[in-house]
Computed example of a mutant assay.
Amino acid sequence: MPWLRISMDCARADVEPLLQFLDRLGADSVSIVARGDGALYSDDPAAPEYWRQSRLQALFPIDAEPDILIACLRNRLGTARAESLCIDELDDQDWSLSGRIGLEPLLFGEQLSICPSWVAAPPDRRVLTLDPGLGFGTGSHPTTALCLDWLSARDLRGSVLVDYGCGSGILGLSAVLLGAAEAWLVDIDAQALEACRVNAERNLLLDRVRFLSPGAAPDRPADLLVANILLNPLLDLAPHFSRLVRPGASLALSGLLATQAGDCLAAYDPWFSMGSMTFRNEWALVQGRRRSAASAD
């Protein structure tokens, strides 16, 4: 299936705001490639590194309205910076090749690495092979990195984990690599579940994952749940999440701006004992434990 590709140049400081804006416009995926000097740079050691000048390439469904998208981006970028905007059609094979520039293995905790298939895997790591594609999640976005750091810091051996809004399956598959007995991958998007299936098969993990629609009722409660989505669905899903996990189960929620974390904590407090928050740039992860049935329900 062809896709609508919109490309634009931007400075390092504009990458994160533009990624958020493109997501709100409905981009299915965005790649970042270097322009000019290939050196990565960041003022803050804790912040993601980007090139001083980058080119963003965003994919939209072929039936998107290009005039509206371009108008929104021109308004967001301003007249001078909008001169770099261009739009064309791209098929899936071209997209997979264009995303290879500048990608390196990503490391999380002491054990985990997320690595594209064409890059040599780092030694002495549990490696999840994951290529950029149409399922959201390659580990580079701060919220995904927050979730992967959270998983890497836990003893997952023998546990069952729910990855709700799984996208590419990166969180659930990583959990299995780190010792979880099983991951339940949940998404409303059939294309995302198919991407999960492909990624699970490539990493020889297919026998340790289950693919579920949001309305499915598992036959037993899980030990952990992680969801990297957006604030409004997280608020709506709090009662449902409480039914998916056992008392004492661990919970991690991201996809949140730091300014939204308080609202999320309050929404989950009736069912979960909410604990500390973790931040990366303007993004947050909140965590908690499922209260006992007697105290919560």
Rank of each mutant, 00 (worst) to 15 (best):
L25T: 12
L22N: 00
P17K: 02
L25S: 09
P17C: 02
G26Y: 15
M8D: 08
L22Q: 07
A34Y: 06
G38N: 09
D9P: 03
A13V: 00
Q20N: 08
M8I: 03
L19I: 01
L22M: 09
V30G: 07
A13Y: 02
I32M: 11
F21E: 06
A34C: 14
S29Y: 03
Q20V: 11
R24G: 04
Y41I: 04
D9M: 03
Y41W: 13
G36E: 13
G36V: 10
A27W: 05
R24E: 13
D14H: 12
R24P: 09
L40V: 01
M8T: 10
V30E: 12
G26V: 09
V30N: 07
Q20E: 15
I32Y: 02
G26Q: 15
V33D: 13
A11T: 07
A34W: 03
D23M: 12
L22P: 08
G36H: 06
P17T: 07
S29C: 15
G36W: 00
P17M: 00
G38P: 07
R12G: 00
G38Q: 14
D23I: 01
Y41R: 00
M8V: 08
F21D: 00
L40C: 05
M8Y: 12
L25V: 04
R24L: 14
V30T: 12
R35H: 08
D37C: 09
L19K: 12
L25M: 15
D14Q: 15
R12N: 08
V30I: 13
D28Y: 02
F21K: 13
A39P: 04
S29G: 15
A39N: 07
L25H: 12
L25D: 13
D23H: 13
G38S: 06
D14R: 13
D37S: 05
A11K: 01
L19Q: 10
V30W: 11
R24A: 15
A34L: 08
V33W: 11
L22S: 00
L25Q: 15
R24I: 05
R35Q: 10
V33M: 07
A39I: 09
D37E: 14
